[in-house]
Design a protein around this nucleic acid. Structure first.
Length: 660
RNA sequence: GCCACUUUAGCUCAGCAGGUAGAGCACCACCAUGGUAAGGUGGGGGUCGCCGGUUCAAAUCCGGCAAGUGGCUCCA
């Protein structure tokens, strides 16, 4: 009998009869391993436990504690979901399915109305029936031609099959339900005990908005009950971190749909946070060589025709205002053309470069209604925008300089959870972008080169570039787990060309500068939404709308002292309030805590006598008596340090590389 | 923009076999009130998202529109 040689993860090699199964291999190692085994990984491909192995290679036994094992479980759950739906609705069509870290989904389509959330409990019951019956799932290899006949009335399965090269296809079958395209499934349905169906949502067939929309059913599955419980709890707690919840509870912002969707109002609390950040970032940038300006939010449409926005970005722009005399005014969607006007207002010498123009620039973009979300996606936003005009040989050092500034700022906000993304144009869809292959190749290579030189980790994404050039994006995640861009550095050879920008070189001749677009804290809206989520609403002292809440024990006896304290603290720039409402002390303390005020000061007889304050920090149960001066020094220190506990930079790994 | 669902007091929600509205919190008033997370009593507040239809009668049923939520597409 033919033999095959399998290499285990410990690099040991073992001979087996060809046709041996992963389960048999597992048994040969240890019976306990065989019990835990859910699939095999042969040369990087998942295989079923009972699938005959006929080639040499690296074999890893995937168990129910491996992340890949959970994927097998979820793929199996998606399969059972399909089988259950097939029982309930024999005429249902199926799209694609997937299992990942977050759960699994299965796309469906029904002519007489899509599957609704209200049907999920019944569907789950049907799944449980299938699971407890635990009939074996049949795995077989069938001719594609036969399968096409079987799926003749299902357009999506037919398309998927036709897209496959193979003549034969691996399928899984249970009763009337046949499915293909799973990586591997469990041998038995018995471990599928902890499954939950979560939600339904529309999803375009194959992710193209020109295609019909299917209904996607989301679910998740775990091997253990407590893992499922923990995951469901995590999903429920997302709401507490969601910036829309915090924004309402802490009275930070609101959106009034009657006045305008996507047009947020900043309440005094939110405005305070925003003002502190705006002052901070302007100071930071001025210190770094930026010149801050103000430019109009309205401009003649011709400006955006010249810039290329009208040609490439029109769908995201508000319609122009017809002024009736041949003039059309446009709400600006980006600030770059405005800063170009600033650059162009004078003749520029090579001695001035790099010229760094910055602005907290308000912009308007007509976002699709379905994309709007709190402060994260809005139609009016203020970008911490900056444009550097530089000579080509300055690109590398300026790029590093922007990154350095970015990391400095991230340190001050204690931001550590992000990834770098190099965003290129989509080579398959070049008409979306400014048409100059050489420019794209050159600038994309330059950005990548800069990141490689610095030795920074990044991933590359085609189709994510701006229409005028490639970018380095800093990607973060929202509470809901969606990716979003916070900061960005963009290289642009196009606009200087379009606007015929020049500087006079050492040779006395005109030269073309390069533009670098960059946003550090991104838009005020998105940035503050992000901060609300990472801080869970408990803003560090330097950002907190109210930094100190003073509560007198007795209104008759201690009001005067409380107000005197307030005056003292306020005179040093501390944001302080006294709670003089006719309520009990416990009530006021509770409110100061739920409003997440960093410091609550209770003052009564003792404090008045000793000229002290009783200090309770947010989130702590205990209070300490401190002399007024001691408290004041401490809180001022807290504010000036951006509330950092240690002197250590949180992004030192990146900063070390920038220092080299 | 698309699919599904949702929209009742400032907030969270109940009411929905059709007979013109309720709770808790918040707000206001009065009483009480001295030590680290909710004192008591009373009161005010809603053309039930908007427009239309069915009906003797619509918060409730039907249709359209708008907004919100979860996703998809798009994106700072």
């Amino acid at each position: 009998m033919a033999k095959i040689s399998l290499t285990f993860p410990d690099q040991s090699q073992h001979e087996f009869d060809a046709g041996v199964t992963t389960l048999a291999v597992a048994k040969s190692i240890a019976s306990s391993l065989a019990k835990k085994a859910v699939a095999g990984n042969l040369n990087g491909t998942l295989v079923d436990l009972d699938q005959p192995l006929n080639q040499d290679g690296d074999l890893q036994i995937i168990t129910n504690t491996d992340p890949e094992g959970v994927l097998v479980l979820r793929d199996t759950a998606a399969f059972v979901l399909g089988a259950a739906l097939k029982q309930l609705h024999p005429d249902l069509h199926f799209g694609e399915h997937k299992a990942d870290d977050d759960g699994f989904y299965l796309d469906t389509d029904r002519a007489d109305g899509q599957v609704a959330v209200s049907e999920l409990p019944d569907i789950k019951k049907a799944m449980q029936k299938i699971i407890s019956a635990n009939q074996p799932v049949e795995r077989k290899v069938v001719d594609k031609a036969d399968l096409l006949k079987k799926f003749a009335d299902d357009p999506y399965q037919t398309l998927l099959l036709n897209a496959m090269d193979a003549v034969q296809v691996h399928v899984y079958q249970l009763g009337d339900y046949t499915s293909f395209g799973s990586r591997a499934l469990l041998k038995s349905l018995a471990p599928l005990k902890h499954v939950e169906l979560l939600s339904v949502a529309g999803a375009y067939w194959q992710g193209k908005s020109s295609n019909p929309m299917l209904q996607r059913i989301y679910g998740t599955a775990f091997f253990k009950a407590d893992e499922l419980d923990a995951d469901l709890k995590r999903r429920a707690e997302i709401k507490e971190r969601d910036h829309r919840t915090i924004g309402r509870d802490l009275d930070i912002f609101f959106v009034d749909p009657e006045v305008g969707a996507g047009l947020p109002y900043w309440m005094p609390n939110g405005a305070t946070i925003r003002r502190v950040i705006e002052r901070y970032i302007i100071d930071k940038e001025v210190a770094d060589g930026y010149e801050h300006v103000y430019t109009p939010v309205l401009a003649n449409l011709n400006l955006y025709k010249t810039s290329g926005h009208w040609a490439h970005y029109r769908e995201d722009m508000f319609p122009p205002m017809d002024m009736g005399d041949g003039e059309f005014l446009e709400l600006r969607p980006m600030n770059c053309p405005s800063h170009i006007q600033i650059y162009n207002h004078h003749n520029r010498s090579y001695r001035e470069l790099p010229v760094r123009i910055a602005e907290l620039g308000m912009m308007h973009r007509y976002e699709k209604s379905g994309a709007l979300s709190g402060l994260q996606r809005v139609r009016e936003m203020t970008l911490n925008d900056g444009h550097t005009f530089l000579a080509p040989e300055q690109i590398q050092s300026e790029f590093k300089r922007v990154l350095r500034l970015m990391m400095d700022v991230y340190d001050d906000f204690n931001i550590t959870d992000y990834t770098f993304r190099l965003s290129y144009r989509d080579p398959a869809n070049t008409e979306k972008y400014f048409d100059d292959d050489e420019m794209w190749n050159k600038s994309q290579a330059m950005l990548k080169g800069a990141m490689d030189d610095l030795g920074l980790d990044y991933y590359e994404a085609e189709g994510e570039a701006a229409f005028y050039g490639p970018k380095l994006d800093v990607q973060t995640k929202t509470a809901l787990g969606n990716d979003e861009t916070m900061s960005t550095i963009q290289l642009d050879f196009m606009m200087p060309e379009k606007f015929q920008l020049t500087y006079v070189g050492a040779d006395g001749k005109d030269h073309r500068p390069v533009m670098m677009h960059r946003g550090i804290v991104g838009t005020m809206e998105r940035f503050i939404a992000y901060l609300m989520e990472i801080y869970k609403g408990a803003f560090p002292t330097w950002l907190a709308p109210v930094q100190v809440e003073i509560i007198p024990v007795n209104l008759d006896l201690h009001t005067e002292y409380a107000q005197e304290l307030q005056k003292q603290l306020a005179s040093q720039g501390i944001r302080v309030k006294v709670d003089l409402r006719n309520e009990k002390m416990g009530y006021k303390i509770r409110e100061a805590q739920t409003q997440k005020v960093p410091y609550t000061l209770v003052v009564g007889d003792e404090e008045l006598r000793d000229q002290t304050v009783s200090v309770r920090r947010y989130g702590e149960k205990d209070a300490n008596d401190e002399a007024i001066k001691m408290f004041t020094d401490m809180i001022l220190d807290d504010i000036h340090n951006y509330s950092r506990t240690g002197s250590e930079k949180v992004n030192s790994n990146v900063e070390t590389k920038l220092d080299k």
